[in-house]
Design a protein around this nucleic acid. Structure first.
Length: 452
DNA sequence: TCGTTCACGC
DNA sequence: GACGTACGTGAACGAA
């Protein structure tokens, strides 16, 4: 159960709903002929992969096991074949205790049929969830996805019809296929996106007031992800490149902030070393380097990550740790939690939910408040530029080419400076990054741009 | 119809 | 010392 505690919180959501209504009405232009072409292409690819699966030696055993009911897209059947018929040892369980057959498991198996099945899954995801999802929802070449404020327990937003907030981007192939379908509103517009950088870490710092976390965000000379990567892999800063930093950030720091722990995260990090063929900046293979420090096995590495975690929570961010403990105890006493933007959440929550909701909701509220101000300003000044949507920490625009730089300046003013007056307890600098496509370009064509 | 599993985003 | 990954949407499968 949720509750709005004050007029400011009410206003934020009321004004947010009004802004979202305009944004949903504007809609997003999509390239329907392109989508139809892609649908056909992916269908052909699917037929090809389907044939590869059918012709595989092991598919014969599959058919003799399931006969008429054979379905190479069935996870239940795949699980039976892998772990019961072919005698492979299961390495991971699902939530319900069944043997998992997800990507993290299958990508480690060296079987041609499994490789084909993974390929099939990828193509089906792109074709059926995204391409077809967009085609089914578009009307006269425009999408009108909903942006909801009344579903999410942490007071974030969600989106559906289609979900505008989970369009592929990390996989460059899937990202390109799908995002090429998203067009700016007019041929003299650019597709663009402005992101808050590290906003959830910033919102958490404003709530838990950990001086070391605040210092990391405030001091441009400091780099939390580099330092933590240095702890994880026992490296001096100058030996840490982009990829090692990346694995430290997404393999350790973020999972740790969300409440994960060494036994969960160490195996994935250990795999990532081989997966990305990690090397120190002076060219030493990371596993060789770790071996020289006495870490030659996953179990040694896990024990090491346990120590890193201890330093992370009990030395580096000990005020954050104390905040988590106190905040959770307060929840146990009261039965609810309050977040600083004026919302209360009642009811049964797990420890990690209790400690994660405030940062998550607050980060989104920074974005929502900024979006409302920017939307009003665009409207009041009768700009041709329109907001197309929002993805938790970013705003997506169709920029008129002649308005672009003025608007980016205004956007930065609102998101980084005006917001400090509305939420005076923000205690770290907020930063934004802008990415914009060439004139007439698609969502896939966006590139980083300096705000003048 | 609905629970489960998978896969995409932040 | 034990404990232990946050929030969503949506597709396919398969049991009920």
């Amino acid at each position: 159960m949720t509750q709005i505690l004050n007029k400011q919180a009410y206003q934020l959501f009321h004004e947010g709903v009004l802004a979202f209504a305009d944004i949903e009405d504007t809609g997003i232009r999509v390239d329907v002929p392109y989508l139809k072409t892609q649908y056909k292409k992916l269908t052909k690819q699917l037929a090809q992969v389907g044939k590869e699966i059918k012709d595989d030696k092991q598919a014969k055993q599959w058919r003799s096991k399931f006969g008429q009911k054979t379905n190479y897209n069935s996870t239940t059947q795949l699980s039976t074949m892998l772990y019961k018929v072919w005698g492979i040892k299961s390495t991971k369980s699902t939530a319900k205790g069944n043997a998992a057959v997800d990507d993290s498991v299958l990508s480690k198996l060296d079987l041609p049929i499994v490789k084909s099945i993974l390929q099939q899954r990828k193509i089906m995801k792109i074709r059926d969830t995204y391409i077809l999802g967009i085609l089914n929802e578009q009307s006269d070449g425009y999408l009108h996805p909903s942006f909801n404020l009344h579903f999410v327990s942490s007071f974030r937003s969600s989106s559906d019809g289609p979900n505008f907030q989970n369009q592929p981007v990390r996989d460059p192939i899937a990202g390109a296929i799908v995002r090429k379908a998203f067009l700016p509103l007019d041929s003299n517009h650019c597709f663009g996106e402005v992101d808050y950088s590290g906003i959830e870490v910033a919102s958490n710092a404003c709530i838990n007031r950990d001086p070391n976390l605040i210092a990391y965000i405030s001091d441009p000379a400091k780099d939390m992800h580099r330092d933590v990567a240095g702890d994880c892999f026992i490296l001096a800063p100058e030996r840490i490149g982009k990829m090692i930093r990346y694995v430290g950030k997404n393999g350790f720091t973020f999972p740790a902030f969300y409440g994960s722990y060494f036994e969960q995260i160490a195996p994935a990090m250990w795999n990532a070393i081989d997966e990305h063929d990690l090397k120190t900046e002076d060219g030493v293979a990371l596993k060789i380097h770790l071996a020289s420090k006495g870490i030659k096995t996953l179990s040694k590495f896990t024990a090491h990550i346990k120590k890193v975690e201890d330093i992370f929570w009990n030395t580096r961010f000990k005020v954050y740790t104390k905040w988590k403990k106190d905040f959770y105890n307060q929840y146990l006493k009261n039965g609810y939690i309050d977040i600083p933007t004026g919302f209360r959440c009642w009811g049964p929550m797990r420890r990690n939910e209790v400690t994660n909701y405030p940062g998550q909701g607050t980060a989104f509220h920074f974005l929502l408040w900024s979006l409302i101000q920017i939307h009003r300003w665009l409207k009041a000044n009768e700009m041709e530029t329109k907001i197309l949507g929002q993805i938790h920490d970013s705003i997506v625009f169709s920029f008129h080419k002649d308005e672009l730089q003025d608007i980016l300046k205004k956007v930065q003013q609102v998101m980084c400076r005006d917001i400090l007056k509305r939420f005076p307890w923000i205690c770290v600098p907020l930063k934004v990054e802008a990415e914009v496509s060439p004139i007439g370009g698609t969502w896939n064509d966006k590139k980083g741009i300096e705000i003048e």
